[in-house]
Nucleic acid binder design. Structure first.
Lengths: 141, 141
DNA sequence: GTCCTTGCAAAACGTTTGCAGTTCA
DNA sequence: TGAACTGCAAACGTTTTGCAAGGAC
């Protein structure tokens, strides 16, 4: 699915097609560097010199809410965005913040990841996102 | 290992024992709510009304560096801290931000987590932390 | 014409830093 | 005594918000 297709499909949800949004999503779908909002801002600025960071965040949050991109919030650095929102796995460098993808069967994880990425793995962190039982009850009201 | 023991053991690393640090670590070891820095601040303030948020962060970062606590950076909310630093797994509520622990054998993960926690699981995110090959080379210089 | 989106600027947020005074060892 | 720590306040970087002007449908 390409950027134009995704954005046109969002029209019936009241989301408008704008050239800025097209540029943002096209960049995200084409790259594998897991850019920060700032990275995307710099890139989109080449084509739209007047674009603002606010617009980047606005678009990223909209795409995230509709499940077309993934926000990776790992560590103390800024979020990174991934145009491939299926559950795959990431290794992040503590030093430069780079994030790389890898396939994973979750057996002997740290060792496996070290082999696949050539990272020296110190730790890992696995978080599941969802709705807790208390909030499930409250949402029914 | 209790708070006093841990802090006394850090003396030979040039870390001083202070009553504020004792209060912070004691709270962290006793609770299972995965508090934010703000939560800890409020709690410690009961005993030390003059304590500052800066001191909380100072102590948390010190304890984190020495591996006695874990910082959970998940989602767009503030970090949560865990007095149990071994690799175990967490489920986080998208709505209220609550984090709960659970045991996990990593087979059929989302389903398993849903059963163990009664969360409705939407997604999970697994991140490994380490040093990438490029940074490994640079660090040798 | 409507109302969603834009660019801009200011604000908000969590966290870190600088500093003068204080405390631990 | 001297280095580490404290409280305070200001600074920082990322992200969000408010608003008037502009653009999509």
């Amino acid at each position: 699915m390409d950027a134009v297709e995704i954005l046109k499909g969002l029209k019936d949800k009241g989301v408008r097609f704008t050239p800025q949004r097209q540029a943002i999503l096209e960049f995200l779908l084409a790259t594998d560097i897991h850019p920060t909002a700032e990275d995307i801002y710099k890139q989109v600025k080449v084509k739209f010199p007047g674009v603002s960071l606010g617009t980047i965040y606005n678009t990223l949050n909209m795409l995230k809410e509709h499940g077309f991109i993934l926000e990776l919030t790992c560590g103390d650095m800024s979020s990174r965005f991934d145009g491939n929102p299926v559950n795959h796995y990431h290794a992040m460098c503590n030093r430069c913040g780079k994030v790389v993808d890898f396939p994973c069967d979750l057996v002997e994880m740290d060792k496996y990841v070290a082999e696949k990425t050539n990272f020296i793995i110190n730790t890992h962190n696995l978080v599941f996102y969802g709705i807790c039982p208390e909030c499930q009850k409250e949402q029914q009201h």
